[in-house]
Amino acid sequence: MSKRVLIVDDSTFLAKQIKDFMEKQMSFEVVGLGKDGNEAIALYKELKPDLVTMDLTMPNKDGQEAIKEIMEEFPDATIMVVSAVRGSAMLECMKLGAKGYVEKPLKFADPIFVEDFKKSIEEVLEF
């Protein structure tokens, strides 16, 4: 049975890229798309996906706050951060319970990146 994925990113372009990747490269089912932290929390509660890809810098409620709230209520949630933000934010997200961190830009034209991204997703799901 394919994994069910929730993608949270305020960039329509990146959300589409990630969705295409999940569906075509991973054969996963993308069950929801959120554009900010509030939508992430609401969609998680509604959909209970196997995997969440979470951007950090988003309007209304950022990804870090959304991770905190989701993990408090659903400690088994599998969240992978996909963000251009580096440094301490990365560590903070892992402390909050995120299981992986992939840095933007997402180089989908680069086969090495694609392989690394696949492995990162698999590792997160096996965590």
Binding site: S11, T12, L14, D20, T57, P105
Partner: peptide, 24 residues
């Protein structure tokens, strides 16, 4: 832009990502 298929909003969103990256 590959994958945009004439969707202007999608193209703008992609270019916005470039600007974000530029900030970094």
């Amino acid at each position: 832009i590959p994958g945009v298929d004439g969707d202007i909003e999608l193209a703008r969103s992609g270019l916005g990502e470039v600007l974000n990256g530029m900030g970094g």
